[in-house]
Design a protein around this nucleic acid. Structure first.
Length: 851
RNA sequence: GCGGGCGUGGCGGAACCGGCAGACGCGCAGGACUUAGGAUCCUGUGGGGCAACCCGUGGGAGUUCGACUCUCCCCGCCCGCACCA
């Protein structure tokens, strides 16, 4: 493959004397990287402003939570993003490439509780550390646009956003059951509950109803689902996850009248076709009717005890019990289809916050109802018969949930179940018994946090005026600095009298502030707008700037945000879009979810002690080596295993380029014009390989997103170039070809190894940064192979290879194949039954059918 | 259980539209240079066989002149969701 190697030609002829290169023999990454980082900063090389005369490209990586230090996983995301940003810049785009900090959140507050260091102090120290590390990696951010969501200049506008939603009726307060730790006196997020216990003090977590602020994301459920169709540039996987999360289902809401008293129980079902098979009903334990119905029945005490027991159990605890539990309420309802009296139960498998919190139980056709019926001896009635089978309630071992023919269903008997679903919906609506309904799995977004380190919710409670939003002119509602972090007794804000006590913006009377802060996902749901005018003090963002830059052309981040952050951002964007503040209904045109970096098979994490420090990589090999390695080690969507050997190999590659370029510079004056046949051919071959490499690298970056193969293409080309330098004395090498190759190679290197490329570029006598140059283009004519290897097969097996001019015709190839010695020997006098010719690729000689 | 993805040398991976399996790199072996090498360079490196050749992309079938690639079944691993009515 490497055409020039291994032919016994003396190695390394003069070419300026490879061993006597007067410049540094080795690339000194530390010195060069520092030099250029300083210069880029002095020149404000990566600052960018809108330029309507040029196409824009908004390249965004998910902003990080500023934990102690940058780790390898981070650098993967940023190295990919920086590659794309630099590549697009070199292709003539005006590239917005900003960075900021998701700097509110619980870890800083917990750190404060444990170490007595104020979250603001530790957070800003961490930011300084990470920013410095990012600079050492050489990422091309416009740092003037840096945002930190914990900065009052930022959260003022997060509060503005809250008020906007409040005004639109999309922010509201409601009682919601939450995980509550009685010892810590605070709410816990689901992920902070481990097997029913508080992660910090191991107390048993309770369910508690608390007043909570919510965003009405469910009002956008349809649009969030339907607009997924607009997102061509998103991974199917993420779209599927969002669609499942939203969980739209079409069905009916049906009223089941109570027997012997007024009132009815509303249920939601997607299988209203099975209503004739509803032999009992089940209410969620939390359903408001559960206790009410049981009152005065012999079952009252039992129901009361059951509901009480369930109230302490989280959803997770209920689910992990494999058996369903329930009790009879002592009351009956009337099946509106059959007129029968059916018992009303309450059970743990019915959830209050889905549908209506009550179900019609059709044990023959729902597996959960079936299990429950078998366990408690409730009747089972088949109303859908599967094709070619007759179900018998007595012998069934599981529910039949599929389609079939209606039986035991009055006037609907004989219909197929899909048709029956439509007819019965019509019938229910005509009879006033029910109505078609769409239900979602998606819940409203609970944004209250009983925590200090977040954006205060800008609401005031006044005895006279009630709930009053803080006027926009009074924003931001500042977080007080002087609070105590004890870890006991809930939010420090609630105990801070100076914060809580205020006056009502409406009547001027005494009032109390809301002490909950917002979920950090609110902060991150709009930060990509703030980048467009990060220091604007008068509005959340400059609408014109947003119109120029948005939507984000490429968003890059981990799969862990497939639902949360990405769904919330889409929601907030739609709210802003409806206000006419942003130009598109979707924030992120294309989304890329990169794989993790693992070590010893496990995700790198401090607690596992398998963290590779980025400092170590930079000081051992330099930032460029780290960047190229991370791009080369695996396709960007794969997880990959960090390997010390692998990074050393990449370092060798960069050193090899350095040495080769020093040889080129030293030997350049002695080079010629490669006129003789063999020399001409060698030079042309290099030129062809160069143009092929440009084609490959460009396509790999731009279309295929296969940076690993782009790097390997560069490696191959460098190998070829080195062979060329090794095989011929300088005088026989072509200076023009060398100049063209060196120029294009350094340009292509620029997005991968920006410091090395910049240094080489300067050495070549260029005065303007390589990062402001155009990406090299290739000439398809020059890239075209002149000769190709054509494979000769006999009955599909490779028997020989021949070299022919590219574009050799079918007839000629057939002739060459049939005349080929090896082919003839294998044919052994037999006739070719068929000859398949694929020009420039292969000839397959087939002797007989089926052989 | 449901949904999605993935199985290729000792390792990471390549093979883009059905056409040379293993590019590029790591590792390993041998060699050159060297006081030295953890620098650099050269050669070799899927398995079997002296060779012709045979086998080989998780396993089995199928379609095809031809399958890592397409279809079906099975096995294994990973991810997501999980009592959502």
């Amino acid at each position: 493959m490497r055409g020039f190697r291994g032919r016994g030609v003396p190695r390394r002829p003069e070419l300026g004397g490879a061993r006597s290169v007067s410049m540094e023999d080795r690339y000194n990454a530390a010195a060069v990287e520092q030099k250029w980082q300083r210069r880029w900063e002095e020149q404000r090389l990566y600052d960018v402003e809108p330029d309507p005369s040029r196409p824009k490209f908004y390249c965004l990586e998910m902003y990080p939570y500023p934990s102690g230090a940058l780790h390898i996983g981070h650098t993967r995301v940023y190295s990919i993003g920086d590659l794309i940003a630099r590549f697009k810049r070199m292709n003539g785009y005006q590239v917005l490439h900003p960075m900021g900090w998701d700097s509110f959140g619980m870890p800083a507050e917990n750190y404060a509780i444990e170490h007595g260091i104020h979250p603001a102090v530790s957070t800003y120290a961490n930011i300084d550390t990470i920013r410095a590390q990012m600079r050492r990696m050489g990422y091309s951010y416009d740092w003037r646009r840096e945002v930190a969501c914990s900065h009052p200049g930022y959260y003022k506008w997060t509060q503005w956003l809250f008020l906007l939603l409040y005004k639109k009726g999309l922010a509201y307060r409601r009682k919601a059951p939450v995980n509550w730790c009685p010892r810590c006196q605070t709410v816990l997020a689901n992920e902070q509950v481990e097997e029913g216990r508080c992660w910090r003090c191991e107390s048993e977590v309770q369910m508690r109803d608390l007043e909570q602020w919510c965003f009405r994301i469910t009002a956008y459920a349809d649009r969030l689902l339907d607009d997924l169709k607009l997102l061509d540039g998103w991974p199917e996987r993420v779209k599927t996850m969002q669609a499942n999360w939203i969980g739209r289902s079409h069905g009916c809401e049906i009223d089941f009248p109570l027997a012997g008293r007024d009132g009815a129980i509303k249920v939601f079902t997607t299988r209203h076709d099975t209503i004739f098979g509803a032999t009992f009903m089940v209410l969620a334990p939390e359903h408001p009717l559960t206790l009410e119905l049981a009152r005065g029945t012999p079952q009252e005490a039992e129901v009361r005890a059951f509901v009480e027991r369930m109230s302490h159990m989280t959803q997770r605890m209920r689910t992990t019990l494999n058996t369903k539990q329930g009790v009879f309420t002592g009351r009956y309802a009337v099946n509106p289809a059959t007129g029968e009296k059916i018992p009303i139960w309450t059970a743990d498998y019915v959830l209050m916050d889905y549908g209506t919190g009550a179900i019609q139980a059709v044990p023959a056709h729902d597996q959960r109802d079936f299990e429950f019926a078998r366990q408690y001896g409730l009747p089972i009635r088949v109303v859908v018969q599967p094709p070619g089978e007759t179900l018998d309630p007595g012998t069934m071992t599981e529910a039949y949930a599929g389609e079939g023919t209606m039986v035991n269903s009055g006037q609907f008997n004989g219909l197929d179940s899909a048709t029956a679903r439509e007819r019965m919906a019509d019938w229910l609506e005509q009879q006033g018994l029910g109505r078609r309904r769409v239900t979602y799995r998606l819940r409203d977004w609970l944004i209250s946090r009983q925590r200090y380190w977040g954006a205060p919710i800008p609401i005031v409670y006044c005895d006279r005026c009630g709930t009053v939003p803080v006027p926009e002119k009074d924003l931001p509602v500042l977080l007080p600095d002087d609070v105590e972090f004890t870890g006991e007794g809930g939010s420090p804000l609630a105990r801070h009298e100076g914060f809580v006590r205020t006056t009502c913006p409406q009547c001027g009377g005494p009032a109390r502030r809301e002490t909950d802060t917002m979920d950090t996902f609110v902060d991150s749901s709009w930060y990509y707008y703030r980048y467009t005018s990060a220091r604007d003090e008068h509005r959340p963002f400059d609408v014109d700037a947003v119109r120029y830059w948005l939507p984000v052309d490429q968003y890059i981040g981990g799969i862990e945000h497939a639902i949360l952050h990405l769904l919330y951002s889409r929601f907030i964007t739609k709210v802003l879009y409806d206000e006419g503040l942003v130009p598109s209904p979707e924030p992120f045109q294309r989304l890329f979810t990169n794989g993790m970096v693992v070590m010893g098979g496990a995700k790198m994490s401090k607690s596992k002690g398998n963290v590779v420090s980025i400092e170590e990589v930079v000081s051992n090999y330099g930032a460029d080596t780290g960047r190229v390695y991370i791009l080369f080690a695996a396709p960007p969507e794969n997880d990959f295993e960090w390997s010390d050997g692998g990074i050393a190999g990449v370092h060798r590659f960069l050193q090899k380029i350095w040495r080769l370029m020093q040889r080129y510079r030293a030997g350049r004056d002695g080079m010629g014009t490669a006129e003789s046949g063999a020399d001409r051919e060698a030079a042309q071959r290099i030129r062809r390989r160069l143009h092929q490499t440009i084609r490959k690298v460009t396509d790999d970056i731009d279309r295929r997103w296969q940076f690993n193969t782009a790097v390997s293409a560069l490696m191959s080309f460098v190998n070829d170039l080195q062979d060329y330098a090794d095989q011929l004395p300088a005088a026989r090498q072509d200076r023009d070809v060398w100049d063209e190759a060196a120029d294009a190679l350094v340009r292509m290197l620029a997005p991968f190894a920006p410091h090395l490329a910049e240094e080489l570029w300067e050495q070549m006598g260029r005065t303007e940064s390589v990062h402001l140059q155009r990406w090299p283009s290739y000439d398809p004519e020059i890239a075209r192979d002149e000769v190709v290897t054509v494979v000769l097969q006999v009955n599909g097996k490779v028997r020989d290879r021949i070299t022919v001019p590219a574009g050799t015709g079918e007839e000629e190839l057939r002739r060459l194949a049939l005349e080929n010695e090896r082919v003839r020997a294998l044919l052994d006098g037999r006739q070719a039954a068929r000859v398949v010719v694929i020009p420039d690729r292969l000839v397959n000689v087939v002797t007989a059918a089926g052989s």
